[in-house]
C-alpha cells in the first residue's frame, strides 16, 4: 500500500506544527482512544472528529518538531491519515512516522500548492504530489530504500516480528 498511489482530501496546517499540538503532554499516558480526540485541537478543533480515513495532512516547514513522542505520528495513523506531506519534517517525526508505518512525503512548494479541502494525488514511489483541480505539481525526493523497507513492512515492530 505504501508504495502505491494515495488519493485523498487535504487538511492544511502551517509551519512548525509541534508534537505538543499533535499529542498534548496532558494526555501523554492516556490510551490511544483518548489521545486521538485531542490531536491538533489547539489549532483546529474540528480535525480529530472530522478527519476521515484516507485524508492527507499538508503542512509547511518543520512539521512534528519537538518531542520524541511517537504518539504524534501514531495518533495521525490511528485517525486514518494516509500521508503527511510537508515542506520539511522534524527528524524525530520522520523516524517515528516510518517506525509506525505512516507514509510521509517531503516536497518543496507543497504548502502553496494546496488549500484545505482540496483533493491531492500522491505517488510515494516517485515522491510527487499533484493537485487535480489546479494542475499544481510538486516533486520531492522518494524515500530512501531503508525507510521504504520498514514502511512496506507496516512499521519497525513488524520488521522485528519477522526476524529483524
Amino acid at each position: 500500500m505504501s508504495d502505491g498511489a494515495i488519493r485523498g482530501r487535504v487538511w492544511k496546517f502551517g509551519h512548525d506544527v509541534s508534537t505538543d499540538l499533535l499529542s498534548p503532554g496532558q494526555y501523554a499516558l492516556d490510551p490511544v482512544e483518548v489521545r486521538m480526540l485531542h490531536v491538533l485541537e489547539s489549532v483546529d478543533p474540528r480535525f480529530a472528529s472530522e478527519v476521515a480515513a484516507g485524508d492527507v495532512v499538508v503542512a509547511g516547514h518543520n512539521f512534528g518538531c519537538g518531542s520524541s513522542r511517537e504518539t504524534a505520528a501514531e495518533n495521525l495513523k490511528v485517525l486514518g491519515v494516509a500521508c503527511v506531506a510537508a515542506e520539511s519534517l522534524s527528524r524525530l517525526f520522520m523516524r517515528n512516522a516510518i517506525a509506525v508505518g505512516l507514509p510521509v512525503l517531503i516536497a518543496g512548494g507543497i504548502h502553496q500548492a494546496f488549500s484545505a479541502g482540496d483533493e491531492i494525488e500522491i505517488d510515494l514511489a516517485a515522491g510527487t504530489a499533484r493537485n487535480p483541480a489546479t494542475g499544481a505539481y510538486c516533486r520531492g525526493e522518494p524515500l530512501p530504500e531503508e525507510m521504504r523497507r520498514i514502511l512496506n513492512a507496516g512499521g519497525i515492530l513488524e520488521v522485528l516480528r519477522h526476524g529483524g
Binding site: 519537538g66 518531542s67 520524541s68 513522542r69 511517537e70 505520528a73 524525530l92 523516524r95 517515528n96 517506525a99 509506525v100 512499521g155 519497525i156 515492530l157 520488521v159 522485528l160 529483524g164
Partner: peptide, 29 residues
C-alpha cells in the same frame, strides 16, 4: 525515548532521540 538525548553531546557522545517502536527494536536487537 526523549528528544533531548542530544544533551550527551556535551561529553562528545552521540546522543539522539528515537520513538517507542524504534526503542523496542533497539532494546531487542
Amino acid at each position: 525515548t526523549d528528544s533531548h538525548t542530544t544533551t550527551y553531546g556535551a561529553l562528545a557522545a552521540g546522543g539522539t532521540g528515537i520513538g517507542t517502536s524504534e526503542m523496542v527494536y533497539a532494546m531487542a536487537t
